[in-house]
Structure formats: structure tokens, C-alpha cells
Simulated scan of single mutants.
Amino acid sequence: MKLFSLAAIVILLLTALFSCSKDPVTNPERKIRYILYTNQDFSGDKDTIRFTLLMHNHTGKMFDSAIAPMTVENIPDFNHKIVIDRLIPNNDTSTFSVGFSYYIDNVGLAWSIDTCSAGVTYKEVRLDFK
């Protein structure tokens, strides 16, 4: 009887030890890649343009960040595109909106928005400015 009790205690201790040492399951990191460029020639267009990167979930703004103002003629071509990688804050697993907004002085505001579905771990958001 003592042998059975000792074996049972050892099995319980080993089970507790191994079940408590498992790493918790974590969601993979989610990343958005923002890509900005133009395929058009805007030479001579001296208007200032201000781009902002956007990310919003159902509760509101998760992230926004402005790119330094530039003139329209200085928007890079595809071979010199601006690429910015951003991890999703708090590794949010929900569906959210991502994109760009831009404002041209004395012209107005516009935007390009896309959706990043729940569970997507990598998304490219491209703005080919026209």
C-alpha cells in the first residue's frame, strides 16, 4: 500500500510540474506595411502635401503618424518608395481599418482606407498617389 501511495504522489507531482511549466499560447505578432509612392510625373508641382498613416479599430484610433510634409513633386517614385512597418498596438486581434490620409495645402483632404481582417498577421497598404 505504501508503494502505491508513493507512486501516486510522484505521478501527481510530475503532472503538476509539467502542466505548470508550459508556455502560454500567444497570438503571432500582426504587422502593417505602409507603402507610399507615385507612378506619375509631378515635376513643378510645388504644393505642400501632408500624409498621415492611419489605423482604427471599432473603438477608435489605434495609431496615426504623420510623414514629414513635402511638395507634391517630391513624392517618391516606385523605386524610391517610402516603406514604414508598424506592429499592431497591443497585438489587437480584431478587424480594423488601415490607410493613408493626405492634405494638399489650398486644395483639400483625401484618404485611402482598406480593411485588415481579424486573424491577418501581415498586411500591405499601398498608396500610389495620382
Rank of each mutant, 00 (worst) to 15 (best):
N57M: 08
I88K: 14
S94D: 13
L109Q: 10
S43Y: 13
D85V: 08
A118V: 05
P89Y: 02
Y34R: 01
I104C: 07
W111Y: 10
L109C: 05
H58K: 15
F18S: 11
P76W: 12
G119E: 02
I82V: 14
I32C: 09
D92T: 09
A118F: 04
I49K: 01
Y37Q: 00
I49V: 15
C20Y: 11
T95K: 12
V98G: 06
R126E: 09
V125W: 06
A110R: 11
E124N: 10
T115M: 09
L17K: 07
F63D: 04
F42Q: 00
P89D: 02
F63P: 02
T52N: 11
Y103D: 12
M55W: 00
M70K: 12
L109E: 10
T121N: 12
S65A: 08
P24Q: 12
D47Y: 06
D77F: 06
G119P: 05
L13W: 04
K61S: 15
L87Q: 12
G99Y: 00
H56P: 09
Y34A: 01
N27L: 11
E124K: 11
T115P: 03
V120T: 15
R50Y: 15
P69M: 03
T95W: 04
Y34I: 00
I35Q: 08
N106F: 13
I104M: 09
Y37E: 00
T115W: 11
D92L: 11
T38H: 07
S65G: 10
S117V: 06
E29F: 05
V120E: 15
Y34S: 00
R126M: 11
Q40E: 14
T95I: 06
M55C: 01
I75C: 01
D64N: 15
L54V: 02
A66V: 03
R86P: 10
D23C: 07
D77K: 13
K46P: 03
V98C: 10
S117W: 06
